[in-house]
């Protein structure tokens, strides 16, 4: 059977009120402040991390763009260098060919001259040899009378020339 016990009602309200006051005024504000600060810190750090992630993404995109540009530039420079080298090589080849032709022509001239000299010398030497050989043959074959006659004929010719 229900029996109203005022003392329990009263002291329950008093003790609950006391607990409520302690929690409201002394415990919860400190705890809530700390929890809020922690939540703010976590939120701030998450926001900072998110910001840094976005920055890193931007930097990565920029880096990728730069890398792409570098690759394009590299490709362009290489293509230009190849083209320039090809043109230079073609020019140099032409110049070298020209030089080679000139040199060849000069060498051919030299060779021709040397050949001419050689033949001339050869002819001279052969002539001399023939002359010497003929001289030797003649010395052997000409008798003193024939020599005398020949000298006489030369003297005659000289006389005629002198007269002339």
């Amino acid at each position: 059977m229900f029996k109203l016990e005022i003392n329990i009602v009263f002291w329950t309200l008093i003790s609950f009120g006391l607990v409520c006051w302690v929690v409201s005024a002394k415990i919860y504000p400190i705890l809530a402040k700390m929890m809020q600060e922690r939540a703010d810190k976590i939120t701030g750090e998450l926001a900072a991390a998110e910001k840094q992630r976005r920055e890193a993404e931007t930097l990565r995109a920029e880096l990728a763009e730069q890398q792409k540009n570098i690759e394009l530039t590299e490709h362009r420079i290489l293509s230009e260098a190849r083209e320039k080298a090809r043109v230079q090589a073609a020019g140099q080849f032409e110049a070298l060919q020209e030089e080679f032709r000139a040199l060849r022509k000069a060498k051919e001239e030299d060779l021709r001259r040397l050949e001419d000299d050689f033949y001339r010398n050869f002819e001279e030497r052969v002539g001399k040899m023939l002359y010497t050989a003929c001289e030797k043959v003649l010395r052997v074959s000409l008798t003193p009378e024939m020599q005398q006659r020949i000298l006489q004929e030369r003297f005659e010719e000289l006389k005629k020339l002198k007269e002339f």
Binding site: F10, W11, L18, K26
Partner: peptide, 23 residues
């Protein structure tokens, strides 16, 4: 009004006191 402190009230206060001290 009877506002006597009996065992139930005492236990309540003990619990409230324990709670406050712990907090």
């Amino acid at each position: 009004w009877d506002l006597s402190v009996d065992a139930t009230v005492l236990l309540n206060f003990a619990a409230a006191f324990l709670l406050i001290v712990l907090l």
